[in-house]
Design a protein around this nucleic acid. Structure first.
Lengths: 314, 314
DNA sequence: TTCAAGGTTGAGTTTTCCTGAGCCTAGGGT
DNA sequence: ACCCTAGGCTCAGGAAAACTCAACCTTGAA
C-alpha cells in the first residue's frame, strides 16, 4: 500500500493494542475509549483483509500476522517520533549569537535587513546588544559574540571585516524645503541645524556642521545650531518632523531617503568623508560555528549590496 | 512528542511537500488539493512551533529544520508501508496444505473440527482432497501434501502417526426404536440392515454385518441386508432417516450420537474391532514448514481428545 | 503591462473519529 | 447452578478533523 493511502491513525491504534495485549490498556494509552480502539483495529483488518487478533470473550490476543506487522509499525512510528523530538531539540538549542552594534546602525540599518536573514535559519538565535562596551569577540560551543564597530581601525587583537565607509551629508524633510527652499549651503543658515554629538573612545573628533560648512566653502561662519543630540535616533525623529536639518550618514539615512521621508537638499553634492568606518569584529583565531558563519557571510554580502546601492562601490 | 500525540496526517503531508519541493505536486501525490497541503503544513508548523519552509510568492522551499525532519518522517512512513506490504504478501503467499483423507473421515470428523484450528492461523490454506489415491506425501517450499489414511499399517516409505483405532457398532435413529424395540442382537433381524461395502486396496476384508452377528453369537444366521452403499455418507443418511440400522465407526458416528440424531441400541455392547486404523501419513524425511507443523500438532491433539471422549484412551 | 505559477485563507461540506450505553461471552468464585 | 468481573462488540449521535472551492496575493518571465 502506498504511503499516502496508509490509514495511519488505525495503524497507530493497532500497534498500541498489539503492544499492550488488550484494547483497554491501549485505549488508556491513546487517550480514547476501548470502543474506539476496537473500531480502528477492525477497520484496519477489514481494509487489509487480514486478521490481526484472535478474539476471545475476555480479551484479544495478537496473532502472528499481527505481531509481525506491529513490529514494523511501531518501529516506523518511533522513527517519526524521534525525528520530531530531534527537531524540537534543534529548535530549542539554537546557536546563540550576540552581536554588539552601535544603536543607530542596529536600529536603522541592521534590524530592517535582518528579516532577510532569519527565514533561512531556524537554528540561530540573534541577540542585538546596543551596548558599546568593547567586549572581546569570542567563539564558543553553542554560540558566538561578535561586534559591529563604528570607529577608526585598525582594531588591535581581533579580525576586522570592513562593511562600509562613512560619509556625512545634510538631510531634511521635504516639507521643510517647501517653507524655505535650500539651494546653496548658505541657505541652510536660515534653518535650524540639528547635530549629533559623539565622543569616540579613540579620541578622534567626530565631524559636525562646522566641518561641513568649512568643506562647503563657508569658512568661519557662525553656525546656528539649535539642537544637539547624543543619539542619532533623536536627531532623525526631529528631522523627519521638519524641525530642522541634520547631518546624516548612509547607514542611518538610506532607507528613509529611499522611502522619501527624508531628502537630500543638495543631492550628491557637499558630502564630507568621515574618518570612521563600520567594521565587523571577530575573534582573531578559531572558527565560527556553521550557523554563525552563515550569518557572517550574509552580513558581508548585505553590506556589499548596500555599498553598491548607495554608490560606495570599491 | 509522544507517539499517540503525533499529528500523523500533517506529518505525512509535510514529508511529501518536502520531498516534492512544492505543495502542488505533493497535493497531487496525496490526492488532495494544494490548499489542504498548505493547511496541514501550516498546522504542523504551528503545532511544533518550528518553521519548516520558507515562503516565496511563487512557491516554497524547505529549510534546514524541515529537511532534517522530513528525512525521519519519510523513513518512518516507509517502514510502516513496507510492514503493511509484507503483511499483504504473507497473507497472499499463505502456506498451501493439501490433505488427502477418506471422504467419510473428512466429512464427518475433520471438517467439523477444522473450524477449531483456522482461527489460530491466517497463514495456512488447507485443501481437503477426498481422492483416495496413494499419492506420496511431500514437503515443499510454500506447502505440503500429507494424508489421513484409513487402512492397516505399517505404511511403507512414509512416517505414520496413529490418530485412532477403528471399531464398529450398530447405530440407528431413535424413531426406529419406537416402532420396534431392539434389545438383543436377534431383534435386529426384524429391521432393514444397511451395509457399507468397501474394498481395501490392501486386500484385507472389511468387516460387515456377518462378522458382527458372528461376534454377537448368532453364527450362521441369514443376515437380511437390504441396502449396500459404497460411501458412508449415503448409509448414514438412510440411517438418520430411520430406514434401517447400520454398522458405524466412531469417526463417522460420534457427532451424531452426541447430538442425539443417532443412538446405539446396545450402548457399549456388541462392539467389534476393525483391523483398520486412521493414520496421519507424512514424508519420511525433511521438516514441515512451521505453519504445517502447527496443523499437524493440532490434529494429533484433536485425535487424542477424540479418543478420550470416545473412550479409546491408550 | 500582462500572464502564469503557486501559495494563502474564508466559509462551507464531507469524512473521520470518538463517545456513551447496552449487549455478549468466558472464566472464576461462591 | 448462579453471579460477577473483565473485556470486547456495536448502534446511534455528536464533535473534530480534513477537505474543497473560490477569491486573492506575490513574484518572475515574456
Amino acid at each position: 500500500m502506498k504511503i499516502e493511502r496508509l490509514p495511519l491513525n488505525a495503524l497507530r491504534a493497532f500497534a498500541e493494542a498489539a503492544r499492550a495485549g488488550n484494547f483497554k490498556t491501549a485505549a488508556s494509552r491513546l487517550g480514547v475509549t476501548p470502543g474506539a480502539v476496537s473500531r480502528q483495529v477492525k477497520q484496519l483488518e477489514d481494509r487489509l483483509g487480514i486478521a490481526l487478533f484472535e478474539r476471545h470473550a475476555n480479551g484479544v490476543r495478537v496473532n502472528e500476522a499481527g505481531r509481525l506487522l506491529a513490529e514494523d509499525v511501531s518501529a516506523g512510528l518511533a522513527r517519526i517520533a524521534s525525528g520530531v523530538q530531534a527537531a524540537n531539540e534543534r529548535a530549542r538549542s539554537a546557536i546563540r549569537l550576540t552581536l554588539s552594534a552601535p544603536p543607530s546602525a542596529a536600529q536603522f540599518w541592521l534590524l530592517p535587513r535582518l528579516a532577510g536573514f532569519e527565514p533561512h535559519e531556524t537554528q540561530i538565535e540573534i541577540s542585538l546588544d546596543a551596548d558599546q562596551d568593547l567586549t572581546a569577540p569570542t567563539w564558543h560551543a553553542g554560540g558566538a559574540r561578535i561586534a559591529l564597530r563604528y570607529g577608526r581601525g585598525p582594531w588591535p587583537g581581533v579580525r576586522a571585516i570592513r562593511l562600509f565607509e562613512d560619509e556625512l551629508f545634510p538631510v531634511c524633510a521635504p516639507t521643510l524645503l517647501e517653507r524655505a527652499p535650500i539651494n546653496t549651503p548658505a541657505d541652510l543658515l536660515a534653518h535650524p541645524l540639528l547635530e549629533v554629538v559623539w565622543q569616540s573612545r579613540q579620541n578622534i573628533a567626530f565631524p559636525g556642521w562646522s566641518e561641513w560648512f568649512d568643506a562647503a566653502g563657508l569658512n568661519g561662519v557662525e553656525v546656528p545650531i539649535q539642537r544637539r543630540f547624543s543619539l542619532y535616533g533623536m536627531a532623525l525623529d526631529q528631522t523627519i518632523a521638519g524641525r530642522g536639518v541634520m547631518l546624516a550618514n548612509p547607514a542611518v539615512a538610506a532607507d528613509r531617503l529611499a522611502s522619501g521621508v527624508l531628502v537630500r537638499p543638495f543631492g550628491h553634492r557637499y558630502v564630507i568623508d568621515s574618518p570612521f568606518t563600520y567594521d565587523l569584529i571577530l575573534p582573531a583565531t578559531g572558527n565560527a560555528p556553521p550557523a554563525v558563519q552563515r550569518f557572517i557571510d550574509w552580513l558581508v554580502e548585505e553590506a556589499e549590496r548596500f555599498r553598491r546601492e548607495f554608490g560606495q562601490d570599491r
